[in-house]
Nucleic acid binder design. Structure first.
Lengths: 231, 231
DNA sequence: GACCTTTTTGAATTGGTGTTCAGTTTTAAA
DNA sequence: TTTAAAACTGAACACCAATTCAAAAAGGTC
């Protein structure tokens, strides 16, 4: 044989793969999934359109991997925030506010990942992404129920509803348009987190306290260098 | 002039318009918005593809009108249910359960109206549809707040979040799959309605009572002849 | 029935983007 | 430097449903 992949090449290939995925993420962050088209993404990554197909079998696969990536980062952030909390209720509050802060800070990307119409079928990866995050929320609600902080309930449905409330209120088409203002953003995050906690049965007064405590670290964790979502 | 539209013709034209819209609604009910394609819809309505374009400038307009129609029917049903309730809290509960029962009873159509990817741009009519229903919910929450039954809050955001919770939990991709069972359906509707009411600040015990009272009439109103959504 | 207008038809056209592939460039080994 | 494999390029292709439009049919008046 007169050709073998050397380390250098392997690294370059990996870098290029990253570059393409990154280009896709950037495009999605700026213009939503509609902006994730092969030719523009290839241009952003400094490769030709055909090259994309040496790394991803189809556009569908590219976007699916993008969705999985972003979800994975998101899940990590949620877990870290919740695990750092002192008790089950705080953990739930931390998880909820983390999601709220993240999606509201990267609305275009979140909208693209979650619900924006795409011309290729990405329902499977969206489903997996949602399932994973819903499962995390469910487990946090379960823990709070076991601790006697919340009434017994269908926690799976509750987790799904909580996610729906967060998404619709913060990144959906009816979301407030003035969320670029830092104060407004925090208010919206607090309001919606409060709604979510009350929905699962946290008493109003207690929920307010939990939210206030959870919002600060969630916001602080975000602007650190590269944000988790837009990395 | 040697030609004027006679009554008969006017009626036939109107009937045809209805037939096309109805065909679109049927198609959406069966196969979601993906099934709303010009040729199949035309076939369903017993006209040629080209004829559709004498009634609707574009597919986008056809679907937009379909969305507006369905939303209008939905809004009417919500108002009727809420207005029949004895007080502001009951009215809110009635509105919420009405939405829940409707979307869960016509999931494919609801999904198509709300969020399913479509190849043409229907974001404006979807936005209008959502806005109208959110406004109705908001006004019911406002009334309950004024009556002192709920804590003061950002009712616009609350209404949006409530809708998001209902939709995601009942028609989204994570919605339970066993909702064809009548009992399961009722349980899901109750559970999610309860979550929605607690979210806006109704106490758990009271919310349970309101939901139970509201679910029965909402369910009863539905199967009457032609359902409001699929009619 | 003659004559004009509106309506309908459905096959052909259009448009836009994902995907392919023959030719070119780059890389590694001899 | 030569050789062969892999990687890359980008213009051409394919796909597929929305849309158009010339011809035909139906409707209305005289």
């Amino acid at each position: 044989m007169v050709y073998r992949r050397t380390h250098q090449v392997v690294r370059r290939l990996a870098a290029r793969r990253h570059a393409i995925l990154n280009a896709a993420r950037d495009a999605a962050s700026e213009g939503g999934m509609a902006a994730v088209q092969i030719a523009p993404v290839a241009a952003r990554a400094n490769v030709a359109a055909g090259t994309v197909y040496r790394y991803f079998p189809s556009k569908s696969d590219l976007i699916s991997e993008l969705i999985a990536d972003v979800s994975h980062d998101e899940l990590t952030a949620i877990r870290r925030a919740a695990d750092a909390a002192p008790g089950p209720s705080s953990a739930l509050a931390a998880a909820v506010t983390t999601i709220a802060v993240h999606v509201v800070s990267h609305r275009k990307l979140a909208w693209g990942i979650l619900a924006e119409p795409v011309d290729v079928d990405v329902s499977q990866s969206r489903l997996a992404s949602r399932r994973a995050i819903a499962a995390e929320i469910k487990s946090r609600i379960d823990a709070a129920v076991r601790a006697g902080h919340l009434p017994a309930q269908d926690t799976e449905l509750a987790a799904t509803a909580v996610l729906g409330a967060l998404h619709e209120a913060l990144v959906g088409p009816l979301a407030p348009s003035d969320l670029d203002d830092r104060g407004k953003l925090r208010d919206a995050v607090q309001t919606v987190s409060l709604l979510a906690l009350r929905a699962v049965g946290v008493m109003d007064a207690r929920a307010r306290g939990l939210v206030v405590q959870a919002v600060l670290p969630a916001q602080a964790a975000l602007p650190a260098k590269t944000s988790v979502l837009a990395g």
